[in-house]
Design a protein around this nucleic acid. Structure first.
Length: 582
RNA sequence: GGGCACGUAGCUCAGUCCGGAUAGAGCGUCGGACUUCUAAUCCGACGGUCGUGGGUUCGAAUCCCAUCGUGCCCGCCA
């Protein structure tokens, strides 16, 4: 309803200014501070004061007087407070909000008939997912969910880097070293087992005799050439390692949960000739140069200092070349493409975009969003070196601490229903994993995070359980009521300030989804859930539901149902579970 | 050296894109509220030169310039 209201306000102000013969290019519509009762306001009077030749409050009065609320459904009173024009909502606004939010999918926007491919995570298949990388699947999955709520047809892709040197090293190491020379795996799973070869191999290359390193390098080079030439036997050798490691990584990611519709392998674009096609088209471009036996793009006209090599002197393609083919493939199959990348890929992403334009693509359909790395207090995390916290360890610890928390609360629990063992287990998972996820997704991705156990697993703070608790409270009331919320309640009965505030908050949810999706910023939804919880808790404190008189009780039950759908879906956008009880 | 981010209360963060009403939360500290629809909750107090210095504007945390601090990037790696 808020979206409809806002559009009415825009129309009203625009028409009023036109009637007063004033410019309508800037309506100055904004949200007033919390202590102002209006839902929207306009500060347009400041800007027009000079033109009108009157002080802002007078101009505001003129604008307000020009608006006839009778022409609108949701725009009610229009008044002024000093230089501001304030817009209030009608009873119909509350009634329609209450009605709309009875739907279980409240907050989902209409289908846009637009497909979007969201590529995220795409971590090199070299070992277990660590916390430094975990921001990517959490952010990426939330963006994918957000876009689905916003009405897009979303596909989630994981781009598998299976053609680079690191997988050649990995394959060579896997085939060379014997398991008896390796430490025990940290977990009984493919990624933990295989990463030992990768680490051993890298260690060997750094510390072994130069002669033996040279031999190893020759084998690694042979694997890379085999991939480039389309040697099926080499593909099979590499795929055995890559697919195995990936199967383990998928299990970690699924715990978040982050799941994918497709794992797109980089080698696919070598094998199907698309990378070669990109090379030949780039060679013909005005920006291509042949220097030092390699084909390069001179991007100085686009503000890039250095050339971008797209074909090595030995005739092989580079990651970027294959990624160009990859993105053209995305453009062929989807209307829009979103990529979630670490900030270290920023320059590369800009070069990619420019090269795609040179190839004749419309890059408006491509949007990238960047996040800062999660570091340890002592520095970065590395799969190769084995430094870092495994995502599995973090999630295990989060669930363990959440379980401790649930169990310690069992004694003081007021509610009469007993929690079963299964309930405790469920709540521990929902709260533990939800807290990790919420902590990451509620911050602006560009802000750096230093990982600290205590902070990551703090269930107090402004964390998931605070919001989840609101959902559990809603469910508790609805369950206790023992009757479904009636469809035709009188929303006018919800006239307490806390009830009105809650309806206002509910009404905004679709607009929050829309804004967050437009900007690819799920943290906006997280901020909303916190505000929502605060507003609901005020209602919960002041407005008893079950003991209210029959009519009021029915209206409040409908409000609680509306609140439940809103908070459940807001959490769903973030990928955080909404527990029925806690 | 160049480019891009980030800098808001003791700590962790919203707000910055799109300038407007006394800069908002949480944690911590201090003081209150459970025979009540679940206290993982709520209420109150204390706490801020919005890194710094200029500029634009009726108005700047927000825009511009400069500067300091931190992080990332500047490969025929991925």
């Amino acid at each position: 309803m808020f979206r409809a209201f806002r559009s009415e306000v825009e129309t009203a102000v625009s028409d009023a200014l036109a009637a007063l013969d004033l410019p309508t290019d800037d309506l100055g519509i904004e949200e007033p501070p919390e202590d102002v009762p209006a839902a929207l306001a306009s500060s347009v009077a400041f800007r027009l004061a000079d033109e009108v030749g009157a002080p802002p409050p007078n101009v505001a009065g003129d604008v307000a007087a020009e608006i006839d609320p009778a022409e609108f459904d949701y725009l009610g009173d229009v008044d002024t407070q000093g230089p501001y024009v304030n817009f209030h909502v009608t009873d119909a606004y509350f009634a329609d909000t209450l009605d709309a939010a009875q739907a279980g999918d409240y907050g989902s926007l209409p289908d846009r008939e637009t497909s979007v491919v969201v590529e995220h995570t795409s971590a090199n298949p070299t070992g277990p997912v660590h916390v430094g990388r975990a921001r990517n699947p959490i952010l990426g999955d939330a963006i994918a969910r957000l876009l689905e709520y916003a009405g897009y047809d979303v596909n989630r892709h994981y781009y598998v880097n299976d053609a680079g040197r690191q997988v050649a090293v990995f394959t060579w190491a896997y085939e060379t070293f014997d398991e008896s020379d390796l430490p025990d795996p940290e977990r009984d799973r493919a990624d933990y087992e295989l990463v030992r070869y990768y680490r051993k191999g890298n260690d060997f290359l750094e510390t072994a005799d130069p002669d033996r390193v040279e031999e190893a390098e020759a084998e690694i080079e042979a694997i890379m050439q085999g991939l480039e030439e389309g040697d099926e036997a080499v593909y099979d050798r590499v795929a055995r390692v890559v697919d195995n490691v990936l199967s383990g990584m998928k299990e970690s990611l699924a715990r978040l949960p982050a799941e994918f519709d497709e794992f797109v392998k980089e080698t696919r674009f070598i094998r199907n000739g698309d990378a070669d096609d990109v090379v030949s088209r780039l060679k013909e471009s005005d920006h291509s140069v042949y220097e030092e036996d390699a084909w390069q793009l001179d991007l100085s006209a686009f503000g890039f200092e250095k050339n971008l090599v797209f074909l090595r002197s030995d005739g092989t393609t580079l990651y970027t070349t294959r990624d160009l083919a990859h993105h053209e493939w995305k453009f062929d199959n989807y209307d829009r493409a979103v990529t979630v990348l670490g900030e270290d890929h920023k320059l590369q992403a800009e070069q990619l975009r420019t090269a795609l334009e040179i190839l004749g693509n419309d890059t408006d359909q491509l949007r990238s969003t960047f996040y800062s790395w999660v570091n340890l207090p002592e520095g970065g995390m590395s799969t190769r070196k084995g430094t870092g916290i495994d995502l599995d360890d973090l999630l295990d610890e989060a669930v363990r601490r959440a379980r401790e928390e649930v169990e310690s609360r069992l004694d003081t629990r007021i509610r009469s229903d007993e929690l079963t063992e299964d309930d405790v287990d469920r709540i521990a998972h929902q709260v533990g994993i939800g807290a990790v996820r919420y902590d990451i997704v509620s911050k602006q991705p560009t802000k750096g995070i230093t990982f600290e156990w205590e902070r990551a697993l703090d269930f107090e703070a402004q964390s998931a359980p605070y919001v989840q608790y609101v959902h559990a409270r809603c469910c508790g009331i609805l369950e206790e009521a023992d009757e479904s919320p009636a469809a035709d309640v009188d929303a006018d009965l919800l006239d307490e300030p806390e009830e009105r505030a809650l309806l206002h908050r509910i009404a905004r949810f679709p607009a929050v989804v829309e804004e967050a999706a437009d900007d690819l910023e799920p943290h906006v939804v997280a901020t909303y859930t916190r505000d929502f919880a605060e507003t609901f808790n005020a209602f919960y404190r002041e407005c008893p539901v079950l003991t209210a008189s029959a009519e009021r009780r029915a209206a409040r039950l409908a409000l609680v149902a509306a609140a439940r759908h809103t908070v459940a879906n807001a959490l769903d956008v973030l990928g955080v579970a909404a527990p029925d009880s806690m």
